[in-house]
Computed example of a mutant assay.
Amino acid sequence: MNLFSNTMATIENGLNYSSLKQKVISQNIANEATPGYKAKDVSFKETLQTEVNRSVSAYRTDVRHYDFNIRNASTQGVVTRENVSYNENGNSVDVDNEMADLATNQIYYNALIDRMSGKFSSLQNVIRGGK
């Protein structure tokens, strides 16, 4: 039986993305004073491309069609911000930017948790017979 028409799986994927982003932001903040450290980021585009490459296969009948077999996605969508340096020691961590990203990610995570809670409340309501 497919409860909620894959909504829970989608929310779970969003939570996994948010968790990975939280880890990367925390790692960046922890290495704020490390000489030569290059900040990392989680790219939704890279993550999406990885999933598309893994789950979608297509046959091209024309060269103008989109090629689904491009394999340029990085591991888990984590990318290093190269060619950027904010400090004289080569470090590319901007703590203000990281804290803003952390707050944005927390809001995203809370929205997903609220959505999941709503789905469970709906299921609980159905089980109780609408009482």
Rank of each mutant, 00 (worst) to 15 (best):
G129A: 11
Q106W: 00
L15A: 06
N97M: 13
V56H: 13
T34I: 03
D101L: 11
Q76D: 12
L20N: 07
Y59W: 14
K21H: 04
N13E: 14
S74T: 09
E32W: 08
D41G: 06
E32T: 14
A103R: 12
S85C: 05
L3E: 12
L48Q: 03
F4Y: 12
G36I: 01
K23T: 09
V84C: 03
F4K: 06
R115Y: 10
M8W: 00
N16V: 12
N2P: 03
Q27D: 07
T7A: 11
R54S: 08
N28Q: 07
A33S: 15
D67T: 05
E82R: 10
S74I: 04
I25L: 07
Y17D: 00
F4D: 05
N13K: 15
F4T: 11
A58F: 13
E32A: 15
D41K: 11
N72Y: 03
R71K: 14
V56W: 11
L48S: 02
I11K: 01
T10S: 14
H65Q: 15
N72A: 06
E12A: 14
K131Y: 04
N69C: 01
S19D: 09
T7L: 05
L48D: 03
N89G: 04
I11M: 04
M8V: 05
A39E: 00
V79S: 06
R81D: 08
T104I: 08
S18A: 15
T75Q: 08
K21G: 00
Q106V: 05
Q49Y: 02
A33H: 13
K38N: 02
S121R: 09
F44L: 03
D67S: 08
N72P: 00
E51Y: 13
M116P: 01
I11N: 01
N97K: 13
D41S: 13
N87C: 11
G14C: 01
L3C: 10
R71I: 06
A30Q: 12
Q106E: 06
F68H: 07
S55T: 12
D101M: 12
D67I: 06
N110W: 05
I70N: 08
N28W: 02
G77Q: 02
L20I: 08
A33N: 15
I107Q: 06
N125Q: 12
S85R: 09
Y109R: 03
F68W: 07
I127V: 15
Q49D: 08
S57W: 05
Q27N: 10
Q106L: 09
R60D: 07
Q49P: 00
A33G: 10
A30V: 09
E88N: 10
D41Q: 13
T75N: 10
F68Q: 02
Y86V: 09
T50H: 09
V93E: 01
N83M: 06
R71T: 05
A111H: 10
N105Y: 06
N125P: 02
A58Q: 14
